[in-house]
């Protein structure tokens, strides 16, 4: 469970927001929305331990993230995945001319954090995850790159939607208990809104906590606004309904006939 008490953050021009209370339980999907530049990304970074709040504290599993043990942030980060709004960045995708990074490199990096995974097991999981986010070779955007192994695709050649989905798959490789995603649904594109909603619900049913930051709530998502508006700052907190039944893996797997069309970059 992630809880925050009287959180506050300062921006360049003064207080961004202050007095934010929240409580995200295990196995729940939460959506944080708010107007542009209101500090959603900052909130996500604070909740994940990337940035110290200017006021208040974050408590995860009963332990303070910023006022507790020294390694509390590092151990929490190790169990949490993060899909930033713009990732992989240009510098990451091609650190120098002629050295373009591929999807495989990104998975390799994530596997370093994940700990020892057998190569065959890793390969199987990578393929499963790429298929899950619609990035197996036959389903890719036509004409943008040679067909073949999606692992070999260069990050710099991916569309915004593909980058967002690759970033998600890369994080899921590590089986994070918590997943933070900044503008993932918006970046993935309309065609992926429902599929991602289903995926998040399935992940939540496995006990994971998902926190999404979006400008607006996707139209077809069944969400319930919760929380005290007085303690929500500029944000609106929505909880995505997670049905009780046990998930079937086949529900999560993406099939070519699910796609209504190609999503734009």
């Amino acid at each position: 469970m992630i809880e925050a008490f009287r959180l506050g953050a300062l921006g360049r021009d003064g207080t961004l927001w202050d007095g934010v209370d929240l409580s995200f339980g295990d196995g729940e999907v939460w959506l944080v929305s708010g107007p542009p530049s209101c500090g959603k990304s900052v909130l996500l970074r604070i909740l994940r331990g990337d940035r110290r709040p200017d006021a208040g504290d974050v408590v995860v599993g009963g332990e303070s993230l910023f006022r507790g043990a020294r390694d509390a942030v590092a151990s929490f980060r190790a169990s949490a995945g993060m899909v930033p709004e713009s990732f992989p960045s240009g510098a990451f995708a091609a650190p120098r001319p002629g050295m373009a990074r591929t999807v495989r490199d990104l998975f390799r990096l994530s596997a370093l954090v994940a700990g020892p995974i057998a190569a065959t097991e890793r390969q199987r999981r990578e393929e499963e995850l790429l298929a899950l986010v619609g990035l197996s070779a036959p389903d890719s955007e036509a004409g943008t790159r040679p067909c073949g192994d999606a692992h070999a695709w260069e990050l710099s050649s991916l569309s915004l939607s593909e980058r967002a989905r690759v970033a998600l798959a890369v994080e899921l490789l590590r089986n994070p208990k918590y997943l933070f995603a900044d503008m993932l649904v918006a970046n993935a594109g309309k065609d992926w809104t429902d599929k991602l909603g289903a995926l998040f619900r399935a992940l939540a049913r496995e006990g994971r906590t998902i926190v999404l930051a979006e400008r607006a709530v996707p139209d077809r998502w069944q969400v319930a606004r919760t929380g005290d508006p007085a303690a929500s700052g500029p944000f609106s907190f929505y909880r995505l309904g997670v049905p009780a039944p046990e998930p079937k893996r086949s529900d999560l797997e993406w099939r070519p006939d699910d796609a209504g069309g190609k999503e734009g970059a």
């Binding site: 990337d50 169990s79 990451f92 650190p95 370093l112």
Partner: peptide, 15 residues
């Protein structure tokens, strides 16, 4: 050259 990679790892809990 690998600064972004190391940042990726640090952001994910690697000291």
């Amino acid at each position: 050259l690998h600064a972004a990679d190391f940042a990726f790892l640090t952001e994910r809990g690697v000291s």
